[in-house]
């Protein structure tokens, strides 16, 4: 079950989307999500879908690969579609027992589905084309202005990178501990919920102990290399915006303007 974690599912590639600065991609993703909530008619939604399709094609991440990411939200998707379908008042098209389907209901259900799918695909497209490290770098630099109001941006970004780095290590550790306790006859699969929760103790305590031990070791290793936080720290590969990033940002503003115009005017 721990292999299903979709966090940081980087899909290696050399496309123009992969090469964009992570800050550009973060901003684009944010604007794209906002645009999905601004859009309120079929033309605006059509434009968002087209924009997403264009970026997916440019990124050369296989579409079937992207669909896998949708599986996790399938249940939420179905529930929200059903709620919108049956619980919207308006002109009744079909009704049976206590259920009625209205024209507005269909409209809202379709829009909701499109919005959710675009939201998930858009956000996951960013993680597919950006390595977790680039992403935290992007967040650190992109939110750098928050330092002015004493938000420890560098420290938060460092914590994120470390957390991401430790996921595979702790997963492996967890696997080992589960095996070792299984070898001692631990039964993790049978019994009711409370029994199974109790059976996790022999797994979780060693895992926590090991996480603390590793954290201590890492802190010492960082101090041994004179790490002392973000102040005065320079980078080996500083992020720099290229021409394509400025182009992407201009396109982004055009897109956002277009969506607003389509939503307001039509």
């Amino acid at each position: 079950m721990f292999r299903d974690i979709t966090l940081g599912q980087y899909y290696p590639g050399q496309s123009i989307i992969h090469r964009l600065d992570p800050r550009t991609k973060l901003l684009w993703t944010l604007v794209y999500i906002v645009s999905l909530f601004v859009a309120d008619n079929k033309y605006a939604y059509g434009a968002s879908v087209l924009a997403l399709a264009a970026v997916i094609i440019l990124s050369s991440v296989p579409f079937t690969h992207m669909l896998k990411g949708l599986k996790a939200v399938l249940v939420i998707l179905i529930i929200s579609v059903l709620f919108n379908l049956f619980l919207t008042d308006g002109r009744v098209l079909v009704s049976f027992w206590i259920f009625k389907i209205t024209l507005e209901g269909i409209r809202r259900a379709v829009f909701m589905a499109v919005r959710l799918v675009c939201l998930i695909l858009g956000a996951s497209l960013m993680t597919y084309t950006t390595t977790p490290n680039q992403l935290t770098d992007g967040i650190e630099r992109g939110l750098g202005f928050l330092k002015l109001i004493r938000v420890p941006v560098h420290e938060i970004a460092m914590m994120m990178s470390i957390a991401l780095r430790f996921i595979p290590i702790l997963t492996e550790e967890l696997d080992k501990i589960i095996k070792a306790q299984t070898a001692r006859g631990a039964d993790l699969e049978s019994g009711n919920f409370i029994k199974r929760a109790k059976a996790m103790t022999p797994i979780l305590i060693p895992l926590f102990v090991s996480a603390f031990r590793r954290a201590g070791d890492l802190a010492q290793a960082m101090e041994a290399r004179c790490y002392h936080g973000g102040r005065g720290r320079t980078r080996m590969n500083p992020l720099s915006m290229a021409g394509r990033d400025y182009a992407a940002i201009i396109i982004m503003f055009a897109y956002l303007g277009g969506i607003i115009v389509l939503s307001v005017l039509l």
Binding site: I177, A180, T201, P202, P206, V209, S210
Partner: peptide
């Protein structure tokens, strides 16, 4: 290997 880390 390293069984001491399973003590809980």
């Amino acid at each position: 290997q390293y069984p001491e880390y399973q003590l809980f």
